[in-house]
Simulated assay, not measured.
Amino acid sequence: MTVLTLNQASEIVDAALGHARELGLRPLTVTVLDPGGHPLVVKREEKAGILRPQIAHAKAWGSLGTGQGGAAGARHATRDPAFFAALASISEGRIASSKGGVLIRDEAGDLLGSIGVSGDRPDNDEAVALFGIEKAGLVADAG
């Protein structure tokens, strides 16, 4: 099984932030976690809201915890809000089921970690997450 390196995680974050600047998005925070939910890289742009690091972490952590990208989690939360309220309680508030949380896989499909992006609209957060992962030559699993 492949391991997500610090260099790869940094490349993902930098590519995501660079793409966000090209698109003219609001200031973002981007977090990459290893499969155990531990941060490898966290970057918060100047003027990003003070809760953005926690939100980005919760998006990435929620994807790892549920085993699916935030897009799938958001759809599921719409269909079964009571279940996701329970997940929020079980996780002690550490989970956010929203676009912008994406699993990172290698070409064989093995889980390497996750990314969480927060600061703009969920669709835009997800778009830059996907861009960063793909730019690093890895496989994005948004759900």
Results as ranks from 00 to 15, higher is better:
Glu134Thr: 14
Leu87Thr: 09
Leu138Tyr: 01
Glu107Pro: 00
Val128Trp: 01
Pro53Lys: 10
Lys47Asn: 15
Ile12Ala: 10
His76Ser: 14
Glu11Arg: 10
Asn7Thr: 13
Gly67Ala: 12
Ser89Asp: 15
Met1Glu: 12
Ala129Asn: 01
Gly65Lys: 03
Phe84Leu: 13
Ser97Glu: 14
Thr5Ile: 08
Gly18Tyr: 04
Ala127His: 02
Ser114Tyr: 10
Phe84Val: 06
Val3Gln: 14
Thr2Phe: 08
Leu33Gly: 04
Pro27Cys: 07
Asn124Pro: 01
Ala16Glu: 00
Gln68His: 14
Asp120Trp: 06
Ile115Pro: 02
Arg121Gly: 08
Thr2Gly: 05
Val139Gln: 09
Asp141Ala: 13
Ala48Pro: 01
Ala136Val: 03
Ala140Phe: 07
Trp61Thr: 07
Gly18Gln: 12
Arg52Tyr: 12
Phe131Pro: 00
Gly109Ser: 01
Ser91Met: 11
Arg105Ser: 02
Glu46Arg: 14
Asp110Glu: 13
Ser10Leu: 13
Ala74Gln: 14
Glu107Ala: 15
Leu64Gly: 03
Ala60Arg: 04
Arg26Asn: 12
Gly109Glu: 01
Val102Pro: 05
Val41Asp: 06
Leu51Pro: 00
Gln8Asp: 12
Leu87Ile: 14
Asn7Phe: 13
Leu25Phe: 11
Glu134Gly: 02
Gly36Val: 11
